[in-house]
Design a protein around this nucleic acid. Structure first.
Lengths: 230, 230
DNA sequence: CGAGTTGTTGACGTGTGTCAAAAGAAGTGG
DNA sequence: CCACTTCTTTTGACACACGTCAACAACTCG
């Protein structure tokens, strides 16, 4: 159920700490392992782009501010996922922020080193390009949903995609702990709207909650809500 | 004001009819120029991916269905723009549709040929990758706006981005003719909502309409509406 | 000239966001 | 062990932005 990948988002990138332990001096020099605590910001909107990040362990949310207190969570990144790749476009500054929601280790690679890898490893760039294509496809789908799908469907969609990304633990609960606030930001709804929607789902025996963990009890109905209307 | 690019979305791709006229047999064999009428579909959601398209002339909308009668327009493509590039991801089938909104010529390149170009031209892949990164950034920004920005701001945003992409004609009108329906689909609003919003803008002397053309009279106010709130 | 499309407006319902406040939960300090 | 913060959860009430529906006008086109 969990996304099928080799080691990192890019198959095996031979760059991040995950794919290549600390042996080769040339890489080690351009690479830094950053220990992050829960809630710690990795970079934020407006920061100059100086490198690119891979999640070695822990969980990260990538989000974009609106209000002082409103934001939209664009994606979550877990072990092996790449973060900060928008910096590869023509922006000098990150258009999004990245924040750890679970403690972990982030592998940072200097942009100059990363760029030189791009120059010499065509296959790697192709993987990266395909990765971007898939991200864009996902993004455009969510955009369409945000425009036309009601909150209930978007919440259902959120559960499904969290399940697909993080899988289930032994008790069958989705293997991630999210605050309601983050769930709301991920679905693009107000805190209270999300809250009420979740209650509806519980009443209808579609999901089950224990602490901050969620278990899907009736996948069929959930999927029906995420179906794109003819 | 119009997007700064060499010849096509990818600088100079040396592939599409725009960047490379019909001289080289190897390319000509894998390439087809398709004459499209206004309203003609180039491909649609669910079609198998067999190649990639460049707009040689005319205008194309890329859109994603929701209802039978609702859709979201994801982007417009004009002369030199690439279309169908989502097919480079891991989908076998297009997740979006492309339809001509002005008659023109579309240059089609067989995927196998395109793929072999990727294998041998590293610089080209890097350009493509950066193009994707920029598209993704744009998409995520629009996604955030769709979630939090009210219709009026989204319409303002639409005018600005249309102006940036298509520029102005001699009389200072934005150089594209769109139906209200398409404008609505582009902003992710109902037809009537868009209609009323446009009327508001006219009343407030912010824009001017002549037929299907739009002229921005008060850019400052328009920009203020698109500002991301602190 | 009828028939179909597109433009225009009004009325209406409702999904959702906003605000406020009660009720817990959980820490802090005496 | 008990007041006293402070934070999160939970509900209720409310407003309004926006989508939906319906009707009519205006325009196109065979």
């Amino acid at each position: 159920m969990v996304k099928n990948k080799d080691k990192c988002d890019l198959g095996t990138c031979f760059l991040c700490t995950h794919c290549l332990p600390d042996w080769i001096p040339a890489i080690s020099a351009a690479r830094k392992n950053i220990v992050v605590k829960k809630g710690q910001q990795i970079f934020k909107e407006g920061d100059p782009v100086t490198g690119i990040y891979f999640v070695y362990s822990g969980t990260v949310k990538v989000h974009k501010k609106w209000d002082k207190e409103k934001e939209l969570i664009l994606r979550f990144a877990r072990e092996g996922d790449i973060v900060g790749h928008l910096g590869l476009g023509s922006t000098e500054f990150y258009p999004v922020s990245a924040t750890a929601i679970e403690a972990g280790i982030i592998c940072y690679i200097e942009m100059s080193f990363f760029e030189s890898t791009l120059q010499v490893n065509n296959n790697f760039v192709i993987k990266l390009m395909r990765f971007f294509a898939n991200e864009l496809q996902e993004s455009e789908k969510r955009m369409r949903n945000l425009a036309h799908m009601p909150v209930k469907g978007r919440v259902a969609q959120a559960f499904i995609s969290l399940r697909n990304k993080f899988g289930l633990n032994e008790e069958g609960f989705i293997n991630i702990e999210l605050t309601r606030q983050d769930l709301a930001s991920f679905t693009g709804a107000a805190y209270e709207s999300l809250f009420r929607t979740i209650n509806d789902f519980i009443d209808e025996q579609i999901i089950e909650i224990s602490g901050k963990s969620i278990r899907i009890k009736n996948e069929t109905t959930l999927l029906k809500l995420t179906e794109e209307e003819q």
